[in-house]
Amino acid sequence: MLLIDAWQFIVAHPGRFLNALGTHVALSAAALTLAVAIALPVGIWISGTGRAAMAAITTANIGRTLPSLAVLALVMPVLGTGFAPSLFALTLLAMPPILLNTYTAIQQVEPDVVDAARGMGMTRAEIMRKVELPLAAPIIFAGIRTAAVQVVSGAVLAAYIGGGGLGDFITAGIAMMALPQLLVGAIPATLLSIGTDQLFGWLQRAMIPRGLAS
């Protein structure tokens, strides 16, 4: 019964629903893209340093323990409400797993392989591009997958600071005790998270170099 009511709500308000869905996906995609664009290069850079790595990893580990809602709440007094503060907060949430996995993945490349690459006369950039990154790719992608799922689920909370998305239906549903409306937000948000996990899982497997696949 509730499900039918929820469906009827969508049919009655297709514009609102699609708009919210679109905002949710756009917010998530933008946050993930920004996080990759920042955390991946930083992860690569700190893999070659000692002190900077320690600082970045400590920060990332602290960042990873913060509850999503707390990050959003912390951003609001500084940046206000709306799409941009939500994007900022979600980007912050997505960075730690990408940064940590990138660093760890590059560190885990066998030292003998890197030594051989150096000894044969590869430049620092060639070693990174031809050897370290391809071998690190599956673990880096595992980090991006974690981040993607975190962002898609975290984006539900963006509604609390006016970021829009499917969370709008949930917060409104709770406020008005309108359960069908709550489901209009909750079910698509859940499916979106599961779908994201599946998509990135497939990408992650596709990133395993042929010589390492079992």
């Binding site: 392989v113 690459a117 170099p209 390492l212």
Partner: peptide, 9 residues
């Protein structure tokens, strides 16, 4: 080198 260090990929 001893452990060869072939590129596994």
């Amino acid at each position: 080198i001893q452990h060869v260090g072939l590129f596994p990929h």
